[in-house]
């Protein structure tokens, strides 16, 4: 039982790491997201004097 848990921990962690990294990179570079990100990063620079209604 314990050996199984450990083996699972050791192997699965790595697999999970790779999967997560790939997922995040795909998301970040997905072409359709480009416009949104550009908007987001510029959004903090203006129109923040009051809440929007």
């Amino acid at each position: 039982m314990h050996d199984m848990v450990v083996a699972f921990s050791k192997s699965w962690g790595l697999f999970y790491l790779v999967a997560l990294a790939v997922g995040v990179v795909i998301y970040a570079y997905w072409p359709a997201n480009r416009a949104r990100f550009t908007r987001a990063k510029n959004s903090i620079l203006d129109k923040d004097d009051r809440p929007w209604s």
């Binding site: 990294a21 998301y27 970040a28 990063k41 903090i44």
Partner: peptide, 14 residues
């Protein structure tokens, strides 16, 4: 604006 928004997302999950 921040240099790369994408990079900030990648580092966040990392």
């Amino acid at each position: 604006p921040i240099f790369s928004y994408r990079l900030s997302i990648i580092s966040f999950w990392g």
